[in-house]
Design a protein around this nucleic acid. Structure first.
Lengths: 208, 208
DNA sequence: CCGGAAAAAGAACGGTCGTTCTTGTGCAAA
DNA sequence: TTTGCACAAGAACGACCGTTCTTTTTCCGG
């Protein structure tokens, strides 16, 4: 078996495991068992534990990119592009075929204490998400779809917050309405910064 | 030394440890070391690990109650009471003297995978928070401070989301502006559901 | 002062972890 | 066929975990 193929298979198994049990529960033994390999066989590819975990996070971010970005090239821009991204992003792990929840969001919280390269990788992934949001928001502002004095960093923070809330409430708290609530919050925020209907109709009251 | 005093001291040490390193990192050894006790001495009070962790979560919720609820009895009601609670709640661990972040929010995320009594205790604490928010929101609606058709569950979900976002961004991502951003979101949400100025001035644009 | 119960200490257990090292194994070039 | 090498398997290590057990200390009523 080629080394690269095995390495990729280990990372894929690790990603599934991180999605269903969290990055903290990743061990050489658990990954080896699921990949039908020996413990030593896994260690051979990732001599240090942090290498394996960083590799899993890299693969997760790559999967996110292929799921949420590649599907959105040129078909639109400005606000429609932002809204489409938000709808694809929130709950993207299901669409990407991951068996559990978002490994990146989970890792950001789990690794918040002990510093190290794995924690930095998780924070870097979150930074990529933030920059993606900022880029899309800026584009929507440039196209006059959003109010010109919109606080970009604040709006990105709010969207990241909705993503995190959705992650926790759908996964940790098993709220079956998590999707609906997150979509509601997104719609409501978008409506409040839209240049055309800014402050006109109040999306929080009335309809359901 | 009285048994109850020692037990209380162990729980206090455990709470500090959970605040600075997370509930997952709580072990009999680590708690014993910080409490200047032997490992066996700690086990004697909490024969099972889950007893210790549930005790720590109970103490955390008790501390939250004394910090965020006791200080808000009767001095007001309706919307002012809700707003005051939100401002005290977000970042309450600092005010309560805890050395790190919120052990409850951290535990909810950390324990989301493996089931057990500790996970249920964390979820129960989150439920108490949700019920507290719902109660305050309902009171504000009854007093005609909030729009009568406000979606109570959705609004409580949004506030919980801001709390979680603040927890993650201030603690995991070390954003120095986390407090300001969370306060901004709270103000903005409150303004959008206020009966008096609903939809008039748009708090998201303009200022800042 | 003393005896006994409660509390703390401490040793020991099987298990799992990351890491290191040694042993086999299969395949391609010589 | 034989040699060499990368890959995988597997044993071994020290450390720490939760849990159980035994021993020592502490303290209080007689």
């Amino acid at each position: 078996m080629s080394s690269q193929v095995t390495r990729k298979r280990i990372l894929q198994v690790g990603l599934d495991l991180a999605s269903t049990e969290g990055l903290c529960k990743i061990t050489f033994g658990s990954v080896a068992r699921r990949a039908s390999l020996s413990k030593g066989g896994v260690v051979g590819h990732f001599s240090h534990m942090s290498d394996l975990k960083r590799g899993i996070l890299d693969l997760a971010l790559d999967l996110w990119s292929r799921t949420c970005l590649k599907a959105d090239t040129g078909v639109g821009s400005g606000l429609p592009s932002l809204v489409r991204y938000l709808n694809v992003w929130i709950g993207w792990t299901r669409r990407a075929g991951l068996p559990g929840s978002c490994p990146i969001a989970q890792a950001v919280v789990e690794l918040s204490f002990l510093p190290g390269s794995v924690r930095e990788a998780a924070a870097a992934a979150e930074s990529v998400w933030r920059q993606t949001l900022i880029m899309l928001i800026r584009d929507a502002i440039d196209k006059r779809h959003l109010l010109h004095d919109t606080d970009v960093a604040q709006l990105a923070w709010d969207f990241l917050g909705i993503y995190l809330s959705h992650h926790v409430s759908s996964h940790s708290l098993r709220d079956p309405d998590a999707d609906r609530k997150a979509q509601f919050s997104v719609k409501w925020i978008v409506a409040s910064v839209e240049a055309i209907s800014g402050g006109a109709a109040h999306p929080r009251s009335g309809g359901q």
